[in-house]
Design a protein around this nucleic acid. Structure first.
Lengths: 148, 148
DNA sequence: GCGAATCGCTTGCGTTTGCAAGCAGTTTGC
DNA sequence: GCAAACTGCTTGCAAACGCAAGCGATTCGC
C-alpha cells in the first residue's frame, strides 16, 4: 500500500506534531510564550553576538519576514529582544537577544528538555539515542542543524 | 550544554518543519491543497467507512473542532468530502471522503511519496530505514500510529 | 557617477486558527 | 420521567500568518 519512505515521513510529521502540541500547551501555561517565540530565542542565542537579521530568522524558521517583524514587536516591549541597526548597511535591522531574553530562554529550555526526556523515555538505550541523533542529522542536512 | 534528548527533540522538530515547508509549497502549486487538508483526507481514507466525526478528526490532527468545521466547508463545495449525520446520535456529524476526494488523495499522496523519497535518499540502507521506522513508532506510541 | 535593479523591512488586506459562548441532542442521577 | 450535566457542533471575536505593495538603502551595469 504505502512504501517505507512514505510511512517514515508520515510518522516523522506525526511525532513532531504530537511533541509540538504538548509543548505549546505547557509553554503557554507556564512561560506565557509560544513555541515559535521559543524557537526564535533559541536561534538568537546560538548565533554570533546573539543576533540575527529578520530575513535570516525568517528563513531558518520557515516563516515570512513580516511574521518576524510582528513577532519581534511585542517581545521588544517585554524586553526579551532588542533592535539593532547595522552600521555598514542601514537596511539590516537585527533582532538581538537581551539578558532578560536569554534568562527566559534558559527557563523555557528547561521545560523543553523535561518534555524531551519524557519523549525518549527510559526504554531507549544510549546507543539507540545516538543512532537516532545521527539519522535525524542526516535528514536535516548540514545547513539546517544550527540549533542542535 | 544541551543533553542528547534535547538535541534529538530539536532535530525532530527541525526535520519535520523542513519537510512540511517543502511539501506545503508543492501541494499548493500542484494540487491546490494545504498540508492539513491532505492530512484530513488521509485520516478519512484510513478509517472505517472513510469517515470520522469532527471531534475525532480534531484530536488526531491537533487542531480545534472549529477548525475542522471551517476546513470541511470549502472541501464539501469542491466535492472532496461529504456530510453525514449519525442515525443513532443526531449530534454526530461525520466528515466522509467521496470518490473524488479519494482520487484527489491518491494524486496528492504520490507527490508526498516522491518527496519522502527525496528525504530518505539513496544513502540510507534498507536496514536503517526499518530501524528508523521502529524508532518513530516508539515515539508516537500505539494510539497515534493510525496513518502509517 | 547615475539610473535601474535588487535587497531588507514594514504595512494593508485576506485567510486560517483557537477560545469562549451558545445551541441542540444525549446521558446521568435521583 | 425529569432536571442537570455532558457532548458534539457551530459561530463571534481576536490573534497569528502569508502575500503583495510600498518605502528607504545598497549594489550593479554602463
Amino acid at each position: 500500500m504505502t512504501d517505507q519512505h512514505t510511512t517514515n515521513a508520515l510518522r516523522l510529521l506525526q511525532a513532531a506534531d504530537d511533541f509540538r502540541a504538548g509543548l505549546a500547551g505547557e509553554f503557554a501555561a507556564v512561560h506565557g510564550i509560544s513555541v515559535n517565540e521559543f524557537m526564535m530565542m533559541l536561534h538568537l542565542e546560538r548565533s554570533a553576538a546573539n543576533r540575527l537579521s529578520r530575513v535570516d530568522l525568517a528563513k531558518r524558521m520557515h516563516v515570512s519576514a513580516s511574521t518576524i517583524t510582528r513577532m519581534a514587536a511585542p517581545m521588544e516591549k517585554l524586553g526579551l529582544v532588542d533592535r539593532e541597526v547595522d552600521g555598514r548597511d542601514a537596511r539590516l535591522v537585527y533582532v538581538v537577544a537581551t539578558d532578560a531574553g536569554r534568562k527566559k530562554l534558559t527557563e523555557t529550555l528547561a521545560t523543553f528538555s523535561k518534555r524531551a526526556g519524557y519523549l525518549f523515555n527510559d526504554r531507549w538505550e544510549d546507543e539507540e539515542i545516538v543512532q537516532f541523533a545521527a539519522m535525524l542529522r542526516r535528514l536535516i542536512g548540514g545547513t539546517g542543524d544550527i540549533l542542535a
